[in-house]
Simulated assay, not measured.
Amino acid sequence: MVSTPSPRTRRAPHLGLTNVRDDRVDVADQVEEILARTQAKITALDKLHAKHALPGFSDRSAEEREIEAATTDITKDFRRCHALIQRIGAEPQHAFPPDRRAQHANEARAAKNVQRGLAAKVQELSATFRKKQRVYMEKLQGHAIKNQDLLIASGAISLRGTDGLEAVDEDIEAATASRNQSQAMEWASPGLDLRGRDRELTEIARSIAQLAELFKDLSVLVIDQGTLLDSVEYNIEQTAAQVQDAVQELNEATRCAMFCALCEDDD
Rank of each mutant, 00 (worst) to 15 (best):
I145Y: 11
R179Y: 11
A257H: 14
W187E: 14
Q248S: 07
G196A: 10
N147H: 05
Q244H: 11
I145Q: 10
Y136M: 01
R101S: 01
H49I: 01
D99H: 12
H143N: 13
L229W: 03
C263D: 14
Q103C: 00
S6E: 15
D22I: 09
A184H: 04
E166Q: 14
A12M: 06
R79C: 05
P97R: 11
D224K: 11
Q148G: 01
T162W: 02
R195K: 10
P55L: 03
V222A: 09
T71P: 01
S126M: 04
R160C: 01
Q39P: 00
V27N: 03
V114T: 12
V27G: 01
H52I: 04
T239A: 15
A253N: 12
Q148I: 12
A156T: 14
L192P: 01
G117H: 06
S182I: 04
Y136S: 03
R206A: 10
H52S: 09
R60H: 10
V122C: 06
E91T: 12
E170L: 11
A144Y: 03
G155D: 05
T239S: 15
D22V: 13
L250E: 09
S189D: 13
C81R: 05
G196Y: 01
V247F: 04
A205E: 08
F259W: 07
A127I: 01
R80M: 06
L35Y: 02
L125R: 08
A188C: 02
R101L: 11
R199T: 06
Q248Y: 05
Q103S: 11
Q103V: 06
L140W: 05
K146L: 12
H94Y: 13
M137S: 10
G226I: 02
A253T: 09
S3D: 13
T239N: 11
Q115A: 01
N235G: 07
S189P: 00
D99F: 09
A110C: 03
L150W: 00
E249R: 12
A175K: 02
A144H: 13
G226K: 02
T71S: 07
A62P: 01
T43F: 02
A102G: 00
I74S: 08
C81L: 05
L118H: 08
V222P: 05
D73P: 00
E237I: 02
L150C: 04
R11H: 10
I85S: 04
A110H: 14
T72R: 14
A205S: 15
D171A: 11
Q244L: 09
D26S: 09
T43P: 00
A95I: 08
E91V: 13
G155N: 06
T4C: 04
A95M: 11
G142F: 04
V31T: 02
A95P: 00
F259N: 14
E64D: 10
V20P: 04
L201T: 07
D171L: 04
T72L: 12
C263E: 15
L159F: 08
